[in-house]
């Protein structure tokens, strides 16, 4: 219990910190510059944090496939190329650097009032993780089940009425017959 709380408290700082790179490089980054593993735990509450093996994933995808235009590597998506064909490496290549944890917060909703805002549909942090990971895993047959990547916490079991909190008896079939 205690452990989880601590994690939550230090969550944001950790994620950001873990994959922060020295800014100002002119050339695109190299895969080798990346850390070996990244602990993704900023949102962990129903599930344990994910120990993300970055090194291993470098073999499967180019930087741009996950980091879009931020690493200076050319993006493939024709929609992105329209503006980001020559965008240099960014100051911040972390997910949370762009994808907000509070996806539908008031601040974000207010931004939509800006009539020239192009990125009206930028996923939040949780969406960005899952859309990216699961999207690719589905194609290359990687793990896609929830607990394949992160084990459920006690809070999660409560939420999902599973494990220790599974419905007792189980005889309570559907409410209507």
């Amino acid at each position: 219990m205690l452990r989880r709380k601590t994690i939550m408290r230090t969550a944001l700082a950790l994620t950001t910190g873990a994959i922060l790179f020295a800014p100002g490089q002119l050339l695109s980054m190299e895969a080798e510059d990346a850390p070996e593993t990244v602990t993704i735990d900023s949102l962990a509450s129903l599930y344990e944090p994910v120990e993300f093996n970055h090194l291993m994933h470098v073999d499967y995808a180019s930087c741009a496939e996950c980091h879009h235009h931020t690493t200076g590597v050319k993006v493939a998506d024709p929609n992105c190329i329209r503006c980001h064909a020559n965008t240099p490496e960014g100051d911040d290549v972390t997910c949370v650097g762009c994808h907000e944890a509070d996806r539908f917060g008031k601040k974000y909703l207010a931004e939509l009032d800006n009539p020239v805002l192009y990125h009206i549909d930028k996923p939040g942090l949780k969406g960005a993780y899952h859309l990216n990971c699961i999207g690719c895993h589905q194609i290359i047959d990687g793990p896609t089940g929830c607990t394949d990547c992160h084990a459920m916490t006690e809070a999660g079991e409560k939420r999902f009425n599973t494990g220790e909190y599974a419905p007792k008896g189980g005889a309570v079939s559907e409410s209507h017959h």
Binding site: F160, N161, P167, G170, E174
Partner: peptide, 25 residues
Amino acid sequence: VGCRSCEAACNKEQDLPEPAVPFDD
């Protein structure tokens, strides 16, 4: 992806009865 997280969240938010089977079933 059919993870049923939304069902589980709604159940708790709206204080609905315990489901017949777990939400990860």
